[in-house]
Every structure is written in C-alpha cells, then in structure tokens.
C-alpha cells in the first residue's frame, strides 16, 4: 500500500458551509450554528483510493468577502480544491467563479470539485442547472451536497482524492 500526502483547499464565499463540509467529512458532525473561520483551519483525513491511501491535508480557508481577502500564499502546494457554493445564495456562485479564475491564473488548471451545498434546503435554492453552465468549460465535477444530512459529502472528497492521486 502506498501512502500519498496531498493538500486540498476549501474555497468559496463566506457562510457557504466549507467548515461544515469538512466537519461532516472528518468528524461526521454538523452544527447549525455559524462560526466564521479566521485565517485557515487545517484538518487531516486518510482517504482510501484503490489499493492506496491518500493522506489529505484539508486547508479550510476563510471565506472571502468585503472584510477578508484570501492570502494567495495559502494556495501554494495544493493538489486540488473544493469550490463551495451555497445553493440558496446565487451570489456565492459568482464568488466561486472569481476564486476559480484566480486559482487558475496563479497555479494553472488543477483538479477541483464544485460543491453546491445546502441540498437539504433545495426548495429555497436560487442556483439552477442553468447557472452552473458557466462551469461547463472547466471539466470539473459538480456535486450537490448537504453538510447537514451528509448527502454528497463523502462523494465530493473521494472524487477529488481519486483525481489528485492519479
């Protein structure tokens, strides 16, 4: 068995659920309460991929907004990223799109998964499949997920782990 170590960044606007997705994936927990991440929060998780294991170092980077700008140096050395959008807030798709553009200009094209979070509130979603067309040229996998119910969370991280370990 081969153990690979890979850095994965969680990127997206504020309050889209990046920290909740990591907490669901790493600790199988969920909290309704919103806690702003300050700077960066680092977690680790071993993901089995085929006969190997990927030791994922998850960099949960604070969401970007008027009050905080992501330090580009946090992105250095990452093998892939999870771009998170809040399905109930269409403006977070624009933030994700802008972040993606920035990552590509800094580091070139890297594997990433676009996670549309808060699938448990799908009745209130503003983000439609039509909106997601703007990512159709990115060859990324789009996963509808819910940190609250756990739906799609494992799939998102596992899909990315498979892509960065090949």
């Amino acid at each position: 068995m081969v153990m690979l170590q890979k850095k994965i960044c969680m990127l997206g606007g504020f309050s889209v659920g990046k920290t909740s997705l990591v907490a669901r994936f790493v600790k199988s927990v969920y909290s309704e309460k919103y806690h702003s991440t300050i700077g960066v929060k680092i977690d680790k998780k071993l993901i089995p991929v085929g006969d190997n294991e990927v030791n994922c170092i998850l960099w949960d980077i604070a969401g970007e907004d008027d009050f905080y700008t992501i330090d580009n140096s946090y992105l250095r050395g990452m093998s892939g990223y999870i771009l998170v959008v809040d399905g109930t807030r269409s403006n977070t798709l624009d933030v994700a799109s802008e972040l993606n553009r920035r990552v590509e200009s800094l580091l070139g094209k890297l594997p990433f998964i676009l996670v549309i979070n808060k699938f448990d509130l799908v009745d209130e979603w503003e983000v439609s499949d039509l909106h997601l067309n703007k990512f159709s040229d990115c060859h990324c996998t789009i996963i509808k997920a819910s940190a609250k119910t756990g739906e799609g969370v494992e799939q998102a991280f596992h899909t990315l782990a498979c892509r960065i370990s090949t």
């Binding site: 504020f14 309050s15 919103y34 806690h35 702003s36 300050i38 907004d65 009050f67 905080y68 403006n91």
Partner: peptide
C-alpha cells in the same frame, strides 16, 4: 485575540446575511 476577531467578523457577516 482570535475570539475577539471572530466575534467582530461574525457580526459583520451576520449583518451582511440578514441584509441579503
């Protein structure tokens, strides 16, 4: 320090979410 910083940032973001 972190708690103070977080409280401030959180408040600002909550206002922003409420405004939305």
């Amino acid at each position: 320090n972190r708690l103070q910083h977080q409280a401030m940032l959180q408040k600002a973001r909550e206002y922003s979410l409420n405004y939305e």
